[in-house]
Design a binder for these strands. Structure first.
Lengths: 107, 107
DNA sequence: TAATTTAGCAACCATAAAGTTGCATATTAA
DNA sequence: TTAATATGCAACTTTATGGTTGCTAAATTA
């Protein structure tokens, strides 16, 4: 369907998903779907959909226990985005001169 | 409408826009809309729309000259995304212990 | 001045995305 | 075993997104 980096970017491009992700990151333990839902003004099913998107992007993984599904954040996955951006860092200050440096390095 | 960080994330979440952005970054000079369009299998109007999205995110700025509009990449804008991610870096290795460190720093 | 080129704007289309309601099912508690 | 809780699934609605076609207008070139 989509490549990994696109899934990642799209997952965190939604503000609600960033909030959910954030809540999971700073949580001191895994949170169930209901526990997460209670923190948001949205139906549980709405939250579930977002969780699924985050999960498919690798940003969240789930641990089922009985009838509950405990969600954990996996911020490490953001490294891929960092890597993507890394390339453009060299162009931050002065585009042309940095491009020169980049080309020099390659030669 | 949307906040800046969301606009940025959404802009680069689309693979075609990432390609356009990339083309502009590595270009040795500003490119007109037509010049960009020629590099993609899409109508000029389609490209124009993407450029507009990139422009609204601050990732591209335009220099009009006569009937032409020369587009430049502004990769510096990605710094904001970097800053957003920075917070989560501390959770990359060991979530719980890193959170501890973070809380320690704040106290 | 006539023809060509560059581009914007508007309308349209198809699909995806964000969120809802309603219902079924499995697990846990009384 | 009955009631309550946690969740998934499906259908539906609304709005956003990615892309198209067709037309218009301004700037260049012949």
């Amino acid at each position: 369907m989509q490549d990994k980096i696109t899934r990642l970017f799209k997952a965190i491009a939604d503000p609600t998903r960033r909030d959910i992700f954030h809540a999971l990151v700073i949580a001191t333990s895994a949170l169930s779907i209901t526990q997460i839902s209670n923190q948001f003004e949205m139906t549980r099913q709405g939250v579930t959909k977002h969780i699924k998107t985050l999960e498919e992007a690798g940003l969240v993984y789930i641990n089922s226990q009985g009838r509950e599904r405990f969600c954990n954040a996996n911020p490490k996955e953001l490294q891929d985005l960092n890597k993507w951006m890394k390339f453009y860092e060299q162009f931050w200050d002065d585009k042309l001169s940095s491009l020169g440096d980049y080309l020099d390095e390659k030669s």
